[in-house]
Design a protein around this nucleic acid. Structure first.
Lengths: 213, 213
DNA sequence: ATGTAACCTGACCAAGTCGTCAATTTTTTA
DNA sequence: TAAAAAATTGACGACTTGGTCAGGTTACAT
């Protein structure tokens, strides 16, 4: 019967596709699109190379599948920027959520970064539009806060870029972050300190008012 | 005579090497190390491929030469962080200098970023130590400012990471920046607005004090 | 049991890759 | 101008790559 067939079908397909995407994420994030060999993905997935091509018709298809999968992850963090929230708390939660996500998914983060650096060749127009729309909406929220006098009048789009950049950095450029912090590897504590610094700097600035009197 | 020989030697050698490094920077920055074909470098340099190998013994040698060349560029921006300066002005000038450099050398910036993302495979230990030392020295300056009560007590190393990340972003992730700002291409005005936003946000924070009274 | 659809895979290919080399031309020196 | 040094280059070879395919096996419905 079709139902049972589909079920097993799902099981084997789903399992293999999951494994392939999983190890492919790892390799792509370390070697980039061109540096990645299908043979290496096959090896790590413990499948013959031809079997990879049974599920995916090309290297690009695997790559695109990974990108499409990870974009939605950022939406959750962005959801913190809502008009009905207190700006300070919204930004704090956003920064923490974004850092948390990037700390938990460094490979996806790096893969995406390397894709953008090389010109966003495989980032679908749909995904780009989705991200643009998300940015537009949050920018509107921030402009509302500014109009209400609850925030300084900064360009919300550049502000987003700043936050995105600061949070991504720790995963994307981990070797640089390690050097800057004198670490062999980044720990959860380092991500906490990063959140602390970013939140404090963004919210309050770093320059103290001159001593009163 | 040796002097004359060296002179012409310099001319032809220097010229070809300059051309090769120049076009190689372009290709490497767009395609990454593995994606770059020596044949393409040769074509753009208008030299036969074998001639490239007359000056460089491998693809890696070209790549490393480029990296070594660009690191010194950042030192100039960092020079703004000096103990004898007013913190606010020092940071403003640093941010502007860094953004200016990255706007003028986007290819080098991207090449470096892609090198780091892929694990800093070819970044020499010497270069890494150099960057670490530069960070250490500026961190000490900032700690001095904090001790003097001229700055909020933020972790200077995370602060540097923030500034580095925010300034690099516009070149490294230009497609994302374009999407976020609704642009086809970034202009000098956009870099000005970026500097304005970063400086204002970092220095003063974005949260206004509650209206007095 | 048996037919069928899904799944698996070793062997293969055409296209491209980096890097080499021997032979030639150009430039410099004496 | 002749010898030497530097620069140039077409052709080539060993190797790797993404992708194909025909023929096999496994899982399942009936």
């Amino acid at each position: 019967m079709a139902r049972t067939a589909e079920k097993l079908d799902e099981k084997i397909r789903a399992r293999n596709i999951r494994i392939i995407l999983d190890v492919a994420t790892d390799v792509f994030s370390r070697k980039g699109f061109d540096g990645t060999r299908i043979a290496e993905i096959a090896e790590l997935a413990e499948l013959p190379k031809a079997n990879i091509y049974y599920y995916f018709s090309s290297k690009e298809e695997i790559y695109s599948a990974i990108i499409a999968r990870l974009i939605s992850g950022w939406d959750d963090a962005l959801a913190n920027i809502r008009a009905d929230r207190e700006p300070a708390e919204a930004f704090r939660d956003y920064i923490r959520a974004k850092l948390d996500y990037t700390a938990r998914h460094p490979r996806e983060s790096r893969l995406f970064a390397s894709e953008i650096i090389q010109g966003a060749r495989f980032l679908s127009l749909k995904d780009r539009r989705h991200m643009q729309k998300a940015t537009d909406e949050r920018a509107a929220v921030i402009e509302g806060w500014i109009a209400q006098g609850r925030m300084a009048a900064v360009d919300p789009r550049h502000l987003f870029i700043m936050l995105w950049a600061a949070t991504q950095f720790y995963s994307d450029f981990e070797p640089l972050a390690c050097d800057a912090l004198n670490r062999k590897k980044l720990t959860a504590k380092d991500f906490d300190a990063a959140a602390e610094t970013i939140v404090r700097t963004i919210l309050g600035g770093i320059i103290l008012p001159p001593p009163s009197r």
